[in-house]
Amino acid sequence: SGVGSLSGSYVAPKAVWLPAMKAKGLEISGTFTRQVGSITMDLQLTNKALQAMTDFAIQFNRNSFGLAPAAPLQVHAPLSPNQTVEISLPLSSVGSVMKMEPLNNLQVAVKNNIDVFYFSTLYSLHILFVEDGKMDRQMFLATWKDIPNENEAQFQIRDCPLNSEAVSTKLQSSNIFTVARRTVEGQDMLYQSLKLTNGIWVLAELRVQPGNPSLTLSLKCRAPEVSQHVHQAYETILKN
């Protein structure tokens, strides 16, 4: 409902995923975005070869969350030497699933008229946090109790000098929702929920102490292997 949710989740700056020297002159930079329920892979293709490039196509290997291109890679004209083109590739999350190591690894193949090239990249899990990830309060309490303590992971988020209001607002713009908030002995305890595109729920308790730039994040999830990646997403969102 805030400006945050209109502008969408945090977007990392583009990074070089495929250097030209490894791809016969084709350089690919990219990042991932999530906006109003749609995931896109934002790509920048640069031709650093001496000949024009045509006939582009892209394919993903099966991956942990079923990410797949939802449309062909559209490069409308031949890419001339020294030319750069920006492409927004829509993604779906209902492709074939295969658990990757690490969980957020994505292997990509890109072809053009010269050859086929392969690269892998890691995505921040927050692109998978869905807009209806606010769990009902009663359900939250029941689920929190139901998930065994062995499935709880705790992390410190250092150097984050935000108050609980700012933390809550920032996280909500990336679909991490505050379900309840309590103050105990001067600490603000935020109870939060998020849901991944594959339906996995993650419950969080975030402790914020006024004047202390270190936050304590406790995560409970029935699939505990996602917790470290959710922690990383919290770091990424809160520190940008």
């Binding site: 309060r137 009663q138 309490l141 309590r182 105990v184 600490q187 305890m189 109870y191 308790e205 406790s218």
Partner: peptide
């Protein structure tokens, strides 16, 4: 608004986490 007991339940949860 109906008192559904949930406010109190969250308070108890927060208390138990701070003083286990």
């Amino acid at each position: 608004e109906l008192d559904d007991g949930l406010d109190e339940a969250f308070s108890r949860l927060a208390q138990s986490r701070t003083n286990p």
